[in-house]
Amino acid sequence: MSFKSAVITFPGSNCDRDALCYLKDLTKGEVHNIWHEETSLPKVDLVILPGGFSFGDYLRSGAMASKSKIINEVVKHANDNRYLLGICNGFQILTEIGLLEGALIRNKKLKFLGKNCFIKKKFQNNFNLSIKDNQVLQIPVAHNEGNFYCDTETLNLLKNNEQIAFEYCKGEFSNNEENINGSIEAIAGITNKKKNVLGMMPHPERAYSDFHQSQDGRLIIESLIS
């Protein structure tokens, strides 16, 4: 059975093409590109909500996109225990929908961060199965609102349910920071309770090809396929 996937495009998405290529190259299966005004979603194994600035980040990042017509179908897809991955703006959209806990607020130092960062897995799930404990991945970030926030009660839930998928860490370059954007407990990505929905700020679709600086982003799709 080949692995089928889809990428949703919103007005202002700018990583949808990257995500499509990422899926085409790594899954070798059927990949659909779905416009946000569509009201149906093909039965696929994985849906990606891509990065970008959907609806110009108006009101709050991801707020408008979370009310798009396609979202009902995306929620049904997730409730059906199939995989849903939100990258960067996609992560912000997932928190605005309420599929993931918490919220993403302005980076602590107010800077737009566009650079390589380092992450490692915290708790295992199907998105990071192929990643070894303490393996440091180099994956780019590009965000202004990536500072993960939740209250203490939610943070305890995330820990107790092992929903923290990735955390920022130090990498091989000198002077790099452990927590690039001020996120609580350096959280870079979380899953829902059932662990079929992952939101992460770093962009694995920008780290998989020979022409990318790193190919560590492959490990996420490889984990899902394995």
Partner: peptide
């Protein structure tokens, strides 16, 4: 529903 995110 939209204008405010009551988490933050």
């Amino acid at each position: 529903k939209l204008l405010v995110n009551d988490i933050i």
